[in-house]
Design a protein around this nucleic acid. Structure first.
Lengths: 217, 217
DNA sequence: CGACCATTTGATATGGATCAAGCGATGTGG
DNA sequence: CCACATCGCTTGATCCATATCAAATGGTCG
């Protein structure tokens, strides 16, 4: 049990665990959410874990005056909502129509008591998430072009070099700690210099990963 | 075993685990480090955990051009270096003379195999660290006064309202994603407005936590 | 006392924010 | 099927918070 198909932490692309879909489904239910639907709110009791099947999720916090920081986008196979404590620290919403596996925390915790290996994996997931969060801090001290380049490489870990962004500019901007205007300008700049190519606003082709990489800082 | 004295995650002040000093010492050795000494470097094999006994530690990453982001300061009773994987993701150094309990990863992992509760605690520590990192991202989208106010409240969780900073301005600046000049100016501003008071540069008295809190955003 | 390093203060420059307008796609009702 | 409203995105002009450059002050230790 809890052994076969690995799930990935998509934005960074590294595999971090090995709880199979099949076994996890024994503990949860797949739910279909519309676009921009709240999955849970900050400070709400945290009695479930979640795993993205298709679609995308943003996890965020807002400051009193409305500034919003998106801490992570969760893509297919990513697990989220596993922070410790009885309250969620962040809110989370779907970015587009999204299928999510919802797992009762209590049932996973039960399993955990009987299977020490699962506990190790929980640690692995949390540790991975920790690294993601740490990396994001690094992102936020970079310049605008550096942030955008880093972002494009983060989401384009499939080989094709073609990205289909599920999220709007506002989301990306809030993830990168920039305004949508600066983001748009930076993308246009990358396009003018031939590093990327855009068919539609949300569809971006990376023409030179090398160039992007060298901008990454 | 692994039950009594809780250890705190000092910068945020919340208790996150309950592995006693006594039992942990069975697995490790206390080492005395001088100031500004490297404990481990980014990319080095990670075969130990660490717990600060006295002093302070900074964990950081540097970008290619030298910009440095300090992800966390670890204060007495904080545990660090528990990221998953065989390589450390961050580097860490002492901020001042520091006493550290060094624990072999393998010995803790052994214990873990026999004690499922310990595994849960590892998860708890990692999850706590994750929240710390996420919070830090929030920090980095704030204005300079907001960052400084947040920082002062973070480190001054003792009742007295008196803080003795172990770290230099450069460290604080790199933690807050500001320059030392902006940091100094902001501190002077807070002093002029009577919110803080300084005897020496490193010794700061918080005259109005309320005022600081309201600046926090 | 003098040298050195940490910190503060001052003057100026600049990257990204803000304010404002244009453009393009998508959808709706007449 | 077209006119028009709406929404998401881009582009343009200006402003401002913080960085940068430079110098003064303060603190510590031989």
């Amino acid at each position: 049990m809890l052994t076969t198909a690995a799930f990935q932490s998509s934005i960074s692309g590294r595999r971090v665990g090995s709880i199979s879909n099949r076994s996890m489904e024994m503990f949860g239910t797949v739910m279909l959410y519309g676009s921009d639907v709240e999955i849970y709110g900050q400070e709400e009791p945290a009695d479930h874990f979640y795993k993205v099947i298709t679609g995308a999720v943003r996890s965020y916090k807002v400051l009193s005056d409305g500034r919003r920081q998106i801490g992570a986008f969760y893509m297919p196979d990513d697990i989220f909502g596993l922070e410790i404590g009885d309250k969620h620290a962040y809110s989370s919403e779907t970015v587009c129509q999204t299928r999510i596996l919802v797992i009762k925390r209590s049932s996973l915790l039960n399993l955990l008591a009987s299977d020490k290996n699962t506990a190790l994996q929980l640690w692995a997931i949390a540790a991975k998430e920790m690294q993601r969060a740490q990396n994001h801090s690094l992102m936020l001290i970079k310049t605008a072009p550096e942030r955008v380049a880093t972002f494009l490489l983060e989401i384009a870990n499939d080989v094709s070099g073609e990205v289909d962004l599920p999220m709007k500019r506002r989301d990306i901007a809030d993830y990168l700690g920039l305004t949508i205007e600066t983001l748009a300008r930076t993308l246009s700049l990358l396009e003018k210099s031939g590093i990327i190519e855009r068919s539609a606003g949300r569809r971006i082709r990376l023409r030179s990963r090398r160039a992007l990489n060298s901008m990454t800082a």
